[in-house]
Design a protein around this nucleic acid. Structure first.
Lengths: 168, 168
DNA sequence: CCGAACTTTCAAAACTTATTGAAATTTAAG
DNA sequence: CTTAAATTTCAATAAGTTTTGAAAGTTCGG
């Protein structure tokens, strides 16, 4: 397989994956493009590489920076801005986990807490079924929350353990 | 808070969560409705409860059954079909994990395997960057695959440990 | 078998989300 | 400063997804 073909395939696959994760497809594709690029890329290069408009490129690069997995770098002697992706995929994973937890798990935990306050006769089977369901879900959600927090935090340990390997 | 209000809030929250998980909103809402219902519900009751059309209800109930988290039950003396949701939320979690792994992780693992075959001069920095990126992602993807498989399998253990608690 | 009750399908319409591109704004070199 | 290059914004539009509802299909009691 030729490099150009392989690149195209990877960008496509990463884009599809992103789309299913609620990340917009272009955002994931830009990330893919930067992941496999040996050098920082300019907005122009991204636009050309993916055949997208300037506005689209700008918007999605910004969002990737918000997520903390793409950075702006300045190339000496160049007026333009260049971008690079975080190449440690574990960091990317924890960044995604952090964002999604914020967007998804945290709000539902808040709602579940509220819903425990439902009033009504314990003997009413509707009330009983509701309370039971909410409590089970809450228990599960809290377990998931703990697991995710551990994963997100693990980034630090991973970083240090990698560092240890390098300096030894 | 009144029960009716609490139900509406839960259905709404669960629907939003589903939407962000790439599950269609109505599908998640039907699941929520069934989760908190003390009795099996008919297509009519679902349509009325969520104010959706017959077609929409039918389609999404079927999909929930494909995912293995909703079942058809027959109520003696009734011509209609009724539906119930899996109430063990851990099972629901593993069912979702299984589906998403199938839809998302498995395809990218396949692509990554292919992409290792890229040909080209190892000294070309483009080739080098590409191979490195792919290998790192592959490693991470395989770790994730193992973790998910363990989680999906854990359902059995969970089931037996719950059973043990009950029969003791 | 027949017919009524029920379920499924699917094309068209409604709704949602992403993209474009041109205008407005910002930036930095001279 | 001024100017041109670069970036950002955003209204219009395109693309994609979900929902509806009526028609077709299925099932079952009599």
């Amino acid at each position: 397989m030729k490099l150009s073909e392989a690149k195209a395939q990877f960008i496509q696959a990463w884009g599809l994956l992103g789309a299913q994760w609620g990340v917009n497809r272009t955002m994931a594709q830009i990330h893919a493009l930067l992941l496999i690029s040996p050098d920082p890329m300019s907005a122009e290069e991204i636009m050309e590489g993916l055949d997208i408009s300037r506005g689209n490129a700008n918007m999605n690069v910004r969002e990737l920076m918000n997520w903390g997995i793409v950075e702006k770098v300045l190339v000496p002697g160049e007026r333009k801005e260049f971008f690079i992706a975080e190449k440690d995929i574990w960091k990317v994973g924890t960044a995604i986990a952090r964002e999604r937890k914020k967007r998804e798990l945290d709000p539902i935990l808040k709602v579940l807490l509220q819903l425990n306050k439902v009033e009504g006769d314990q003997k009413d089977k509707h009330v009983k079924a509701f309370k039971e369901a909410i409590q089970n879900i809450q228990k599960f959600a809290q377990q998931t929350d703990s697991a995710l927090n551990a994963f997100i935090k693990s980034e630090e340990n991973w970083f240090y353990s990698t560092l240890l390997k390098v300096i030894r």
